[in-house]
Nucleic acid binder design. Sequence first.
RNA 1: GGGCAGGCGCCAAAGUAGGAGAGUUGGGGCGGACUGUAAAUCCGUUGGCUAAGCCUUAGGGGGUUCGAUUCCCUCCCUGCCCA
Length: 306
Amino acid sequence: MERRALVITGPTCTGKTELAIKIANRTGGEIISADSRQLYRYLDIGTAKPSREELRKAKHHFIDHLNPDEDYNVSRFENESSEVLNNLFPEGRLPIIAGGSGLYIKAVTEGIFDEADTDNEYREYLHKIRTNQGNEGLYELLKAGDPAAAEKMLPQNWKRVMRALEVFKLTGKSILWFHEKHKPEKEINFVKIGLTIERELLYKLIENRVDKMIETGLINEVESILSSGWKKELNSLNTVGYKEIISFLEGEISRERAVELIKRNTRRFAKRQMTWFRRDEKIIWKEVDQMTDFDKLAEEIISEYF
RNA sequence: GGGCAGGCGCCAAAGUAGGAGAGUUGGGGCGGACUGUAAAUCCGUUGGCUAAGCCUUAGGGGGUUCGAUUCCCUCCCUGCCCA
């Protein structure tokens, strides 16, 4: 029997959550959130996490999955989400992968090479090198070990340089070798739906949403996360909406400036998401706007593909 | 109505005691890269064209000059002060 799953993606603020829930309700499906920030507990308002009510309407996986200080990565997401997928198929439930983290979507739908895990000790060592010798120091190291990979990256992009070094140290092989070798291994037919909104309107919606986040207590949320003892340096808090409020709370910028920055950074984020998703030729794009009837859209998608 | 200070590319400014301005700084925008931190990390671009070159350009118009963004005249606009 063919195994089919639905993917709903697209930039932030386009209505993915709403559409996913409507489709889940009509099909008895379950939602697999592919959102690298909604994974974290307590980051609710700033990540536009589905509300309690919405969560009650449909079964969601990977929402409130982690504490803010837990390490996570795409690979873990790939493993855990495949497990969920494998449980859903025998039950005849439609998996609805919904979210805007492009790399996570890619991992679920195409898999990810898993021959090289992370090596925290080595990363620490690399961080030290970066502190002492800068990006160039790291880059030189990569050039020495894996010149082909170095060729493909810039010294400034130290995170990618670091990962390439890590892969090389762990396996003795170039990260490029794994990329080339890896082939999509999923025997699942993913129908990918992408939601878009005309740029100008999208920006307006983003700005409105940010204002609403502030009104509904984003600042309190951040304060209470920090006062619970979570450190501001955590990866989970290096997130649009959180880092800006943190620097407001620390007196570095005004409240107005923080709001402005959240808006700008969210706009930029949405743009990066578009850049990522545009490359994916399998995505079937649905343009929406404020008039869009999501019930109808849900029906449409179901009758067309499922 | 009078006085003063301003008006430069999408926006906000810096500068020029006349001489390398399609150029400076910041912002915003746009495009792109990205398989283990991805809401992360990073790159490019932002007057036009027949594109290693050429053209147009500093509020509008005029003038002085070999040469004007810079000096002069005039008009318009903005801000502040006085009526």
